[in-house]
């Protein structure tokens, strides 16, 4: 790989100053998206700032109607955590579907949502679970945080510190996995709350999005029958070597029904 500088800060303040030390800098969390991007020269940072040693970025806790997960918490940890399983078992199921065991041992919540790959799983969950994204500078509602392909509300050098998921009455994630990459060809996260239903879709479009028509139909009748045949406009969806937009639109309906049945 092309050479770069490497910093191992112990605090958010030191991480911020290492990031702004000159040249192009990138934060590294689990590195399972960033390092492949550096190998292929899609990214060519001058400095990598490793967040692994920064205090206070891991851990899982429950506080009222929120489940808080630290940004550097790995998918493997979320997949086996008892608090997550007790509060939001749908999130446990989602974590188990990310990548493979080795990827889950390294990949982190914060890394995923800072990168915001359009086929990543967590963005659908954050949207459906009405999440709050806390950073070293402030806080965002998930609806404002995700801004399309690889785009977020984060400013340059801003660090995600934790995410607060609103605990639903029931939720589940259904995903049609790409068999090699294990990213979502389409993934749908459904969450039912006392005051309504939220549906997050990933993999289908240029970024994760909510599906208002599905939310309205499920709010009246939370059943797969209520959303059977519900159309999703393929005009806004992705076509690539793996699947066309019309196929993805159909698949979203299938995943939606699967998620509703599992919730």
């Amino acid at each position: 790989m092309r050479d770069f500088e490497y910093a191992r800060p112990a605090s958010l303040a030191d991480a911020a100053s290492a990031f702004s030390g000159g040249g192009e800098a990138a934060f590294i969390a689990g590195g399972h998206t960033l390092l492949p991007a550096i190998k292929s020269r899609l990214r060519m940072p001058d400095t990598l700032v490793d967040l692994a040693g920064v205090a206070g970025l891991t851990g899982i806790s429950s506080d009222g109607d929120r489940l808080w997960i630290g940004a550097m918490t790995t998918h493997a940890t979320v997949a086996v955590d008892a608090t997550v399983a007790a509060k939001i078992p749908g999130l446990t199921g989602m974590a188990k579907l990310i990548g493979d065991p080795q990827v889950r041992n390294r990949g982190t919540l914060g890394g995923v949502i800072a990168n915001n790959d359009p086929a990543a799983d967590y963005p659908a969950a954050l949207l459906a679970l009405d999440a709050i994204v806390d950073t070293d500078r402030g806080s965002y509602a998930a609806d404002d945080y995700f801004q399309g392909m690889f785009a977020t509300a984060l400013a340059d050098g801003e660090i995600v510190t934790r995410v607060g998921f609103r605990v639903p009455l029931a939720s589940a994630y259904a995903k049609f996995r790409h068999p090699a990459s294990r990213y979502a060809v389409v993934g749908v996260y459904v969450a039912r709350f006392a005051d309504g239903v939220r549906v997050g879709v990933t993999g289908a479009g240029p970024g994760a999005f909510r599906w208002p028509e599905a939310e309205a139909a499920l709010a009246t009748d939370f059943s797969a029958a209520a959303v059977a045949g519900l159309p999703l406009d393929p005009a806004d969806l992705n076509t690539d070597i793996h699947a066309g937009a019309e196929y993805r639109a159909h698949l979203a309906g299938v995943m939606l029904a699967d998620a509703v049945k599992a919730a």
Binding site: Y6, I28, G31, L35, L48, D50, A52, Q102, N105, R106
Partner: peptide
Amino acid sequence: QSVKSCTILAVQVD
């Protein structure tokens, strides 16, 4: 923990 050693820097395992 099993990790793919092609996708982690040596400095990250300090």
